[in-house]
Simulated scan of single mutants.
Amino acid sequence: MGTWGTGNFDSDTAADHLSVLTARLVREVEDAVAGDPVELEPDEYWGVAVPCNLEILHLLASQRWAGVMLPDIAMVQAWKATYLAVWDANIEELEPTPEHKMHRRAALERTFDQLAEAIRTR
Rank of each mutant, 00 (worst) to 15 (best):
C52G: 08
N90H: 15
A66V: 06
A74I: 07
A107F: 08
V50E: 01
I91C: 03
A49I: 09
E44W: 02
A81I: 06
D43A: 14
W79I: 02
A78H: 08
S62F: 01
W4H: 09
D36Y: 07
L60S: 02
T6L: 14
V50L: 06
I73M: 09
D10P: 02
A106N: 08
L40R: 01
L21Y: 14
C52F: 06
A81S: 12
S11W: 11
K80W: 04
L18V: 11
V86T: 15
T97P: 02
A74K: 13
S19T: 14
D12K: 10
T82P: 04
V33P: 00
L25R: 01
I91V: 15
R64C: 04
P96V: 07
V76G: 00
G7Y: 10
L84D: 03
L18A: 09
E39F: 06
K101H: 13
A107E: 14
A106R: 13
A107R: 13
D10T: 13
D31Y: 06
A116T: 02
I56T: 12
G35E: 08
I119T: 05
V86L: 08
A89E: 14
G2Q: 11
E44I: 02
P42K: 08
S19V: 06
A107H: 07
L18M: 13
T22K: 01
V38L: 12
Q63G: 14
A15Y: 06
E30G: 07
L59R: 15
W87Y: 15
L115I: 02
T3P: 03
A49S: 11
L18T: 10
W4R: 07
I91F: 04
P96I: 05
